[in-house]
Amino acid sequence: MRKMSRESFQAGVVGQRWLTGHVFEISFERPRGFSFIPGQKVSLTIDDITRQYTLINQPDASKLTICVGHVPDGRLTPLLARARPGEIVILSAAAGFFIYQSLGRKAVFVATGTGIAPFLAFIRNGVRDFCCLQGAINERELLYRDEVEQAAGEYIPCLSAPESNGPFWNGRVTSYLEQRLAKERYDFYLCGNVDMIRDAIRIIDQHFPGSRVFMETFF
């Protein structure tokens, strides 16, 4: 846990936990002097391979935690999936501008897959009263559902291939946006894959003019 230069830190793995068959959390000891704003990400390097991950721990937690979607033929995530306690990774200082701003309008969080990460960071920093559309294939893939649902003023799980008949929107987050969300001005926060973000923005421009949009594209 040594500070390397102004911008990077060595940190040891302290824990790992699988949330679903292909998503896991991994935690690192928190380097001294490391600070971040909820919603920010770090660049993580192992063996000269660098990828970015959003921090999901509470701002003052003693560990840094990220939530990772395992891409079996990816370059970095298989290394992270196999990482053992004590293994050292290199972390950059936290960076990024996908940060919650209270702007007096209703905030609508739209997340797919691991894109829930920055919203979890917001929630763990006390953000409430938002509307959250969480997209996944099925119920089991709704990461951190209970925590998000409890904090949200309005929580809409959107499932593209549900396995039961529970209360959820049967379809993608974007179809909910287009067909159901009341037509008002909002502050939209979008996080996930680029296709969702592109579709969501098209719908927002068309149906929610005058809204603000903040976005973070994971892949």
Binding site: G96, I201, R202, D205, M215
Partner: peptide, 21 residues
């Protein structure tokens, strides 16, 4: 960091402060 990147195919883009212009 994709602050102003390519998700506006329809002649609009996002400002850092969120507005679509």
């Amino acid at each position: 960091m994709k602050i102003y990147t390519g998700t506006g195919d329809r002649g609009k883009t996002s400002l850092f402060s969120g507005e679509r212009i």
